[in-house]
Simulated assay, not measured.
Amino acid sequence: MINYTLKQLYSFEAVVRLKSFTKASKALNITQPAVYMQIQQLSQNIGTELLNTKGKTVTPTFIGTKLYQTCLRVIATLEQSKADIEQTLHPDSGHLEITTTTTTNAFVSRILAQFKKQYPDMTFHLEVTNRKLLLEKLSNHNANLVIMGEPPADMSLITQPFMENPLIAISHPDHPLLKNQHNSIKALRRETLITREQGSGTRMTIERTLGMKFNSEIEINSNEAIIEAVQAGLGVGFVSKHTVQLELKHNIIKQLNVDKLPIIRHWHVVHNAKIQLSPIAQRFKNFIIENGQPLSKSKGIVQSH
């Protein structure tokens, strides 16, 4: 008969998710030998090796992968139960795990500050990351809510658009294309184009909608760095207009008039369809939707999902 404890399952889930005993021990706030002991006991109880170790990287075996999926379900159920009990005892408190992209960070921070005034006893952890890690968190149920631009179509998610997100082209204030009232996509292709890394929502939208392939090796993993690169005169960048309001206002950069731009996407509040939101998470989701800008028909190409 196979036996295992909750401590063993929590330790195993953390090691597999983080691919490291050291990182797992820090996440669980216990010593590395304690984590290693839990995994050893779990392997002995099951009767087979659960992990492969190559250098400092840890990956699950075939049986380990199956057990990891069980861990995710068990831990999700336990955490949900804990949240439900906490919310029943303290309906105006609770903890939120929120993940967002760099594009939406400014808005989410402002809306969290407003929400915290209404629910001062609630706590939250806000993580700002790239699209790849954000999708991992959605898949592994490691976030209550995710705020993002383009939800994936191949995951079981509940999504709600709440604000328009116009993508624009930006340049240095002295760029020669600013003299033109309109610029074609063909003219833009001749420029050095700066964009986010492979896999980012902004890059995928630009390539798909404008039929463009980026012609330089300049890939940058943050909007702030793209703005700085454009300011330095390295080329033309593509960003959400919401992220450059201040720079546009002070003429630090300029918005280029380009055919088919702006592309109107939407920001979405997203969570895994298999997870039932806690009362405080549901309140925050409603708060975001109510306080987002009304969706309307805007000039430019509208990306619907």
Rank of each mutant, 00 (worst) to 15 (best):
T99W: 12
T101A: 09
T102N: 12
T102L: 13
T103C: 09
T103G: 04
T103Q: 06
T103F: 06
T104M: 03
T104N: 05
T104P: 01
N105W: 00
N105C: 04
N105T: 00
A106I: 03
A106P: 01
F107L: 10
F107E: 04
V108W: 00
V108R: 00
S109F: 04
S109R: 14
S109P: 04
R110V: 07
R110A: 10
R110L: 10
I111Y: 03
I111D: 03
I111C: 10
I111S: 10
L112F: 08
L112I: 12
L112A: 13
L112T: 13
L112Q: 08
A113E: 11
A113W: 04
A113I: 08
Q114H: 15
Q114K: 11
Q114I: 14
F115N: 10
F115M: 13
F115H: 07
K116S: 14
K117W: 06
K117Y: 12
Q118W: 13
Q118L: 13
Y119L: 15
Y119A: 13
P120L: 11
P120C: 05
P120T: 09
D121H: 11
D121Y: 09
M122H: 05
M122Y: 12
M122N: 11
T123W: 12
T123P: 05
T123A: 07
F124P: 05
F124H: 15
F124A: 13
F124M: 09
F124S: 13
H125N: 11
H125Y: 07
H125T: 14
L126P: 04
L126D: 05
L126C: 02
L126S: 03
E127P: 03
E127N: 13
V128H: 02
T129E: 08
T129V: 10
T129G: 09
T129H: 11
T129W: 03
N130Q: 13
N130M: 08
R131T: 13
R131Q: 10
K132A: 12
K132Y: 13
K132C: 08
L133V: 11
L133I: 15
L134P: 01
L134K: 07
L135D: 05
L135C: 04
E136K: 11
L138F: 02
L138Y: 01
L138A: 05
L138C: 04
L138K: 02
S139Y: 03
N140K: 12
N140T: 11
H141L: 09
H141T: 07
H141E: 08
N142C: 11
N142K: 08
N142Q: 15
N144H: 14
N144M: 12
L145P: 04
L145V: 05
L145S: 14
V146H: 06
V146Q: 08
I147S: 01
I147H: 03
G149L: 06
E150Q: 07
P152T: 00
P152E: 01
P152Y: 00
P152N: 03
A153Y: 00
A153N: 02
D154Y: 00
D154K: 01
D154A: 00
